[in-house]
């Protein structure tokens, strides 16, 4: 509880400073501000508590179970399902793909009708979810086969740069943003636990070097896929 309060203090200070010294207006609703802050602190406390009790242990125990079972097929299927399943329903992604369809309609890329925009937004959403699924699969393969993350990320960047030069200007901002919005509050701890669990149950892997990196792939892959989606449509 005290920790959570400390986490939140900077936000409160920033807002108070700008309200009092720059905008010079008192906030209109002090009461809801205080109760809201209280809820945020309480929520963070519960979240961190539940993280250590539920999300981390289940992620790691599943990674270990897959490693002992020795079935790469099922491990990769699980990795894909986790990436795809957690992304496709992500509210931030739904919001951004709706906005993207407006951009595309305004730019005249698709017809400005409700159906065309909806199908564009749905297509974009599934594209991103697919790319996150593939990204987690590639990331898990990297841990299994001991590929170097440095080169993989660099190759990813080079692909992004090449594809950017062919993509329509309107899609670029959305594509770059889509990498950031895919990883939600529940996915991140789970995927991190999966990577670390795998790296620590395969001999010869260092959890620090091999366990992290899954989220990096999940942020890079959507950029490439969305740019390609923008080129194709």
């Amino acid at each position: 509880m005290l920790n959570s309060l400390r986490d939140l203090a900077p936000i409160i200070l920033v807002i108070a400073f700008f309200q009092i010294f720059v905008l010079q207006q008192p906030p209109d609703n002090v009461f809801s501000l205080l109760t809201g802050t209280f809820f945020v602190v309480l929520g963070l406390t519960f979240f961190v508590y539940g993280l250590e009790m539920g999300l981390f242990p289940i992620g790691e125990s599943m990674a270990r179970a897959f490693a002992h079972k020795g079935s790469i097929f099922w491990l990769l299927t699980f990795a894909f399902a986790l990436g795809f399943g957690t992304t496709v329903a992500e509210p931030a992604l739904i919001a951004i793909s709706d906005e993207a369809s407006e951009v595309a309609a305004e730019a005249g890329q698709i017809a400005a009708t409700v159906e065309a925009m909806e199908s564009y937004a749905t297509g974009l959403r599934y594209t991103v979810a697919l790319s996150v699924g593939i990204a987690i699969v590639v990331g898990v393969l990297r841990i299994l086969l001991n590929w170097s993350i440095h080169y993989m990320i660099m190759i990813g960047y080079i692909i992004v740069i090449i594809v950017t030069s062919f993509a329509p200007a309107e899609i670029i901002g959305i594509a770059y943003d889509s990498g950031g919005v895919t990883t939600s509050t529940i996915t991140v701890p789970l995927v991190t636990a999966l990577g670390i669990g795998l790296a620590s149950s395969i001999s010869g892997r260092n959890p620090m070097i091999d366990g992290f990196g899954l989220i990096a792939f999940a942020s890079l892959m959507p950029i490439i896929f969305v740019l390609v989606y923008g080129i194709l449509i």
């Binding site: 929520g43 963070l44 979240f47 508590y49 539920g54």
Partner: peptide, 10 residues
Amino acid sequence: IGLFYVLIGI
């Protein structure tokens, strides 16, 4: 219970 706490927390 942990998952439930995460849910309540969020």
